[in-house]
């Protein structure tokens, strides 16, 4: 460590650490799986895939919920977190998650036992809204943090949802390949379009962030050239964009490609999504409390 002592804190670029370092990885997982689970549920609605719905329910209820729970300093007081939806996006988020778990559970029951009933439709709509909310709220959580310019972007919620949906289509491909109730070709097409859309979004997001004060630029530089560069270039760019894109172009030209390659592409997309959340959390830096001029 080059830093000399506590008192130099906050005259330079300081990263937020609480939500990524050490136990903070649970929060990262929770954030990512929210997007993934929500996205997959929406995709599953589109295909009316019960497998997909069930998988997304598991992701949200077990992985996301569990990660959140483990992360808390005082997990047994968990229930208190729903008491401030009026102002806190975290309260809202937890309510979304809980509603989703209940609504999607009911919806699946309907779909399984009473398909086609009005109940199924209603719960599909409600759970769909909840799933959208689950995948979007983490974007708002970050977006409203004033001290971290890198996050002050209204693109963030959109980015999170659209990455979620893309990964959802990815998982749908896997479901299709394992003989599930999903149309492979449609999934692939959507996946491709979303990949292009998301790539554009990421570029716009980074460009905008780089122009958002010195600190925003620092956050971007940190990813391009700093400690985060390996994650950024290997995770987001190479695995998350280039490999799926090459595979997409390849399969577009060839028409059909090997299952293993498709699965690889999906895995890469998921790594890309995880890397994106990781970078966004890790590069989030505060504006110096007190600025040192050059």
């Amino acid at each position: 460590m080059k830093t000399m002592q506590a008192h130099e804190w906050m005259i330079n670029y300081t990263r937020q650490t609480e939500w990524i370092d050490r136990r903070g990885i649970f929060l990262w997982i929770a954030f990512y799986t929210g997007g993934l689970g929500g996205g997959l549920y929406l995709v599953s609605l589109f295909f009316n895939s019960l497998w997909g719905m069930f998988l997304s329910w598991l992701i949200i209820a077990v992985i996301k919920g569990g990660a959140h729970f483990i992360y808390l300093g005082r997990p047994l007081r968990f229930w208190r977190m729903v008491t401030r939806p009026g102002s806190s996006w975290l309260s809202r988020g937890i309510i979304f998650v809980l509603s989703f778990v209940v609504l999607a559970g009911a919806q699946m029951a309907f779909t399984y036992w009473m398909p086609g009933t009005a109940g199924e439709i209603i719960f599909k709509v409600l759970a769909g809204i909840a799933a959208l909310a689950v995948s979007v709220y983490t974007g708002f959580i970050l977006n409203t943090v004033k001290g971290v310019p890198f996050w002050n972007s209204s693109l963030l919620p959109l980015l999170f949802v659209s990455y979620g949906v893309m990964s959802g289509f990815g998982l749908a491909i896997v479901i299709a390949l394992s003989g599930g109730d999903v149309n492979l070709a449609t999934s692939e097409t959507w996946s491709r379009w979303l990949l292009i859309f998301n790539t554009l979004l990421v570029v716009i997001y980074l460009l905008a962030a780089a122009n958002r004060e010195a600190t925003g630029k620092q956050s971007v530089m940190e990813q391009m050239r700093g400690h985060l560069a390996p994650v950024f270039w290997a995770g987001i760019v190479a695995l998350g964009i280039v490999v799926p894109a090459v595979l997409a172009v390849f399969s577009y030209i060839v028409g059909e490609i090997a299952t293993a390659l498709l699965v690889t592409g999906v895995a890469c997309e998921i790594i890309g999504g995880l890397s994106l959340r990781y970078c966004i959390l890790k590069a989030g830096a505060y504006k110096p409390l007190v600025a040192r001029t050059s």
């Binding site: 300093g73 968990f78 001290g147």
Partner: peptide, 22 residues
């Protein structure tokens, strides 16, 4: 007695004046 230790406030305080007692 009410804090669950979610650290949202720690992240959200733009002045970094909060500390989670780990």
């Amino acid at each position: 007695d009410k804090c669950v230790g979610c650290r949202y406030c720690v992240v959200a305080c733009p002045y970094q004046n909060r500390t989670f007692l780990s």
